[in-house]
Each structure stands twice: as structure tokens, then as C-alpha cells.
Design a protein around this nucleic acid. Structure first.
Length: 172
DNA sequence: CAACACCAATTGG
DNA sequence: CCAATTGGTGTTG
């Protein structure tokens, strides 16, 4: 038989100041949020992440997409979406820890590793596997010297996200 | 199941 | 500045 068929994945594309955004979801919730330079690139990455899954364009996701686009502008804006990132237990732990970093703050791989009783290299690896760009704030993780290290979706985007989050909300 | 290569780091020489 | 080390994961045998 053909490769294992999987439950279909609904996706939706939109353009943002950071490039193209691809949102993918199934019955469990949001499975992926990817950034790319073009719709084609985004879809390609999605297909690579979910090998064998049927990808279905789903315009009705535009409502959810709107929330996400708004969050790109205002990191503090609320998000009412079920997140369902797929990953190993270790990855889930890392991602959850990431979620506890406040907007505008950064954390080093070393500190995160210490908090999780792991190793920086492993943490970085888990961050790199993050399927939910921005929503799981892996862009808030930097190296020990407080400098940007790497970013799966491009250092430029990481820098842009951090700059946006550091915007003072009311003067300051 | 075992071995190997890959990587978004860190520390020491 | 370069080299060695370290942890988890995906891929291959």
C-alpha cells in the first residue's frame, strides 16, 4: 500500500510584514505555523513536516489567521486557539518552558537547559524543531552573550520579532 | 534495535 | 580565535 495515509491537514496562507505565514490545523488544533518567502516555500516545508498527509486549503481558517497576524503586530494581543504541536516529550517540555518567557524578554540556551535539567545543545535542537513559529516564542532564546544565535526561519525574522516585542506599549 | 551524522551552544586552550 | 565536548533527534544499516 501507499505510504500511511494520515488525517488531512487544513491550511491557510496569508502575507505579513514578516513574509508569508502558513497556518495548518487539524481536529486537534493548530499543528504548524510556518514563515516563508513564498507560498510555495511554505507549502513545501509543510509537506516535508507532515509527510504523507493530505494538505487541504481551508479559507475558513482566515479568522484564526487574523488573530495570528494581529499578534505579529502586537505580541501581547490575546490568542484564542488550541495549540497542538507534535513533538517528543522532551520537545514539549522545552516548548512549554518557552511559553513562559514574557514578551520582550530573552533567555539563554544555557539558562533554559539548566531549568530543564538538560543541555544547551539539546535545548537548541528542540527549539529548532518548533512547529509553531512565533506562538512558541523560540525567537526569545539567545546565546549566553545575549546575542542572537540562530533561527530556523532566518535571523532577520528573529531580529524583527524581538525588535517588535521591545516596542514600548505606552511611551516609556 | 544499533550506529552515525547533524546542530539555533558552551567552555577551555 | 579554534577545538573538543555534550544531548537529543532523524536517518540508515
Amino acid at each position: 500500500m501507499a505510504a500511511a495515509l494520515r488525517p488531512p491537514l487544513a491550511y491557510h496562507l496569508a502575507e505579513s510584514p514578516l513574509g508569508w505565514v502558513l497556518l495548518a490545523a487539524d481536529a486537534s488544533g493548530l499543528r504548524a505555523l510556518l514563515l516563508a518567502d513564498s507560498p510555495e516555500a511554505a507549502l513545501e516545508e509543510l509537506a516535508q513536516r507532515f509527510v504523507g498527509a493530505a494538505l487541504v486549503a481551508e479559507p475558513s481558517l482566515s479568522g484564526d489567521m487574523a488573530q495570528i497576524l494581529r499578534r505579529l503586530e502586537q505580541p501581547d494581543s490575546p490568542l484564542d486557539l488550541p495549540l497542538a504541536p507534535a513533538g517528543t516529550p522532551f520537545q514539549q517540555r522545552v516548548w512549554q518552558a518557552l511559553g513562559e518567557i514574557a514578551a520582550g524578554q530573552t533567555v539563554s540556551y544555557a539558562a533554559l537547559a539548566a531549568r530543564l535539567g538538560s543541555h544547551p545543545r539539546a535545548v537548541a535542537r528542540a527549539c529548532a524543531s518548533n512547529p509553531l513559529a512565533v506562538l512558541i516564542p523560540c525567537h526569545r532564546v539567545v546565546n549566553s552573550r545575549g546575542q542572537l544565535a540562530g533561527y530556523r526561519w532566518g535571523l532577520a525574522r528573529k531580529a524583527a520579532l524581538l525588535a517588535r516585542e521591545r516596542q514600548p506599549l505606552a511611551g516609556a
